[in-house]
């Protein structure tokens, strides 16, 4: 600072170098350092290792799982275990995979649509009672779900749908989490001017939502969709109570793998691995979309 004041004639000069520096740092600004790479590689390793460990355990015998020192390479029994998994008539593994796709898929679409609608309204529209309603949305997230199983169960009986897949879809179509996520994202990511401009052009709110807001919400919607799908793919407690035994989701089917007082760990691991694979596929496909969605946002800004 003092340098700038005492040397006015070089001020012009230093500003130039500064600008050059900034242009350089513009590319520098977001470049990763070797330390960043190290962090990324370690994170990646830590993230993937337990999954790899699952593969190792799923492909080895029960005896080998508990050996010391542990073995770090997959064994040769994966095929046998997977075959045994699909052969267990009681477990209905194939059917349960299909059921989980239907359940998690339907919930995901519902949650993303309903959350985007409401999240947008809370973030960008002014209406009477919005604060109170928003508070209710957040409050709905604070209710411990576990105790709700009995009243929900009674309710499904009133509707005459107990035991069916609808029982595990309908209660989850609203998500306070989703509304809140979209709202917080929309506040930051969608400029008010954009909406005002569309309004001046005479666009209806629905039209604005569809053509202005929704594209901007894509990153949040993608994250929400991905996490919703994973949450309900992995949901256990309510499906376990609500679904009739001959119509299970995948996590319910998995819980049948242990028989009585004895658990075949390697078979359970193989089951868990098979139940995780579809999700991995979803992440690889949907994840690419997700990442490009995030990048989109960056390009636009």
């Amino acid at each position: 600072m003092t340098a700038v004041v005492t040397e006015p004639e070089t001020g012009q000069n230093s500003k130039k170098t500064l600008r050059r520096k900034v242009v350089e740092s513009n590319t520098q600004l977001f470049r990763a350092s070797p330390l960043n790479y190290l962090v990324l590689v370690i994170t990646f390793f830590l993230s993937v290792f337990p999954l790899y460990w699952m593969l190792v355990m799923a492909s080895r015998t029960n005896d080998e799982i508990v050996q010391m020192p542990p073995s770090f390479v997959p064994g040769s029994n994966l095929g046998t275990h997977v075959e045994a998994l699909f052969d267990q008539a009681d477990v209905l593994f194939a059917k349960s995979l299909m059921n989980s796709f239907i359940v998690a898929g339907t919930i995901t679409v519902g949650v993303v649509i309903f959350s985007s609608l409401a999240g947008f309204a809370f973030a960008k529209l002014k209406f009477r009672g919005s604060n109170v309603l928003l508070a209710i949305v957040v409050l709905t997230m604070m209710v411990p779900v576990q105790l709700g199983t009995v009243p929900l169960y009674i309710m499904m009986d009133w509707f005459g749908i107990q035991g069916s897949l609808s029982t595990v879809i309908l209660p989850y179509l609203f998500s306070g989490f989703g509304v809140f996520l979209v709202r917080q994202y929309a506040i930051q990511a969608i400029p008010d001017e954009l909406i005002e401009a569309a309004r001046v052009d005479g666009a209806s709110t629905l039209r604005i939502f569809w053509s202005v807001v929704l594209p901007g919400l894509r990153p949040a919607a993608a994250i929400l969709g991905l996490f919703t799908f994973m949450t309900y793919w992995n949901d256990f407690l309510w499906p376990f109570v609500a679904l009739s035994p001959e119509n299970p989701t995948v996590q319910v089917a998995l819980s049948r793998l242990s028989s009585g007082y004895y658990t075949d760990q390697s078979l359970v691991m193989a089951g868990t691995l098979m139940a995780t694979l579809p999700l991995l596929v979803v992440v690889v496909f949907f994840g690419r979309q997700l990442i490009s969605g995030i990048m989109d946002g960056a390009v636009k800004a």
Partner: peptide, 9 residues
Amino acid sequence: VGVIIPNVT
């Protein structure tokens, strides 16, 4: 994508 893998499990 790697960082969300733990959440898949």
